[in-house]
Design a protein around this nucleic acid. Structure first.
Lengths: 214, 214
DNA sequence: TAAAAACTAGACTATTTGGTCAGGTTTATT
DNA sequence: AATAAACCTGACCAAATAGTCTAGTTTTTA
């Protein structure tokens, strides 16, 4: 869909919805839900404001539609990992997947961060259902790896919090990171940061880094 | 100043300024600069709105006063570390200090995060001066530790980013963390998370955890 | 080809918001 | 005790904002 030839094959409505969603993601990422202006979203989408409200019932509907898309990003191959898998492989790929999302969808990550910091008013259902059961399942797998001696003793909750913290940081705090580095991070820089992070976390857990990530 | 006896000895103006700053920190942490309402800050401070504007020239002045306070929090004993110091000791204490700020001043951490995610419009000077020179100095010390074989080869920038990411995560994403844990983190939980983080990062760097943090 | 549906867009409304104003009260100073 | 300074506060203003309305144009469907 990123090729302009593909764009031509969408209906006018689909094309405009995508333009609005892309524009809104940037505005909500930069200003938050309350700070974002419908007019600014319209300007960035290069559409009249009333068009935005024609396609999305309200500013809030637009925000919630985006948030729902973003929550789907967090699905990963770690979701299906079992006790029989190699924890070093699974965790390394999970970190790499998360870093790739931070590289490709930094505004999505920022929107998620803002939603959490703002008290997560729109995530109650997600938290209580999907997120809690996902967490329970992953914690259980990690515990079994520890029990089987495949992984050094660690608290599975803190391990996951630390993986999220570091991988999402590259998106959320990119302004600070780029300022301190003196330049934006390239794809190659992200790859290096990914390998560095995998090494830190796996070594910190007593695991050996898979050669693919060295 | 936390003792009520001390409060009695402040002038009316100082007492009100503190009330406003405390209220504002919570409102800006929850809603961001644009999303926070002067009336809501006044309500939380239990003062009329025009009193807030009597003590602070504008909403923006109030925000900048708070931000300046917050930037001072990041000063730490790591600031003065030298090549002659033990990296395990220095890094362990730095992580512990950062976690303690996350525990005691979560709203300050959230305000800082929001400011960065919002593009850091008010941090240009801070970034270009203090932050850059602090970073250059710390990176130099870390590089010398590596050169002397005191620390495993690692990228000093990524190491610091990862320390900030994880320690600040406990404040910024506390809503998610508390939801997944099913309860808020106690001081003892924070101590455990701190030790866990110190172990992860120091082991990940080939360092031995000081016994104080085991 | 005509009608229905989708799309467009400027004008407008009601509400919210940051900040000002004017006059009052209380506290501090002389 | 009188005056100055600090503090207080409801009413008000101008600007900004989300969303509605209405009538037009374009595209799709029958």
């Amino acid at each position: 869909m990123s090729a302009s030839m593909n764009y031509k094959e969408l209906s006018i409505g689909e094309l405009n919805r995508n333009k609005i969603l892309n524009a809104a993601e940037k505005e909500f990422a930069l200003h938050g839900f309350k700070g974002a202006r419908v007019q600014a979203i319209a300007d960035r989408a290069q559409l009249p404001k009333t068009n935005v409200l024609y396609y999305f019932k309200s500013k809030e509907s637009l925000y919630l539609a985006l948030l729902e898309d973003i929550l789907r990003l967090w699905n990963s191959r770690f979701d299906e990992a079992t006790v029989g898998d190699d924890p070093a492989e699974v965790l390394a790929h999970y970190i790499a997947d998360k870093m790739e999302i931070s590289r490709c969808r930094p505004d999505a990550s920022k929107m998620f961060a803002l939603e959490i910091i703002n008290g997560a008013p729109n995530l109650n259902e997600f938290f209580k259902d999907q997120h809690a059961s996902w967490m329970a399942g992953r914690v259980d797998v990690i515990k079994q790896w520890i029990d089987q001696g495949k992984l050094a003793a660690t608290d599975p909750h803190y391990l996951l919090f630390n993986i999220w913290a570091t991988s999402q940081h590259y998106a959320d705090f990119s302004v600070q990171i780029n300022e301190l580095r003196g330049k934006p991070m390239t794809q190659s820089d992200f790859a290096e940061a990914t390998n560095n992070l995998i090494k830190l976390i796996l070594t910190g857990c007593g695991l050996t880094v898979p050669s693919k990530f060295e």
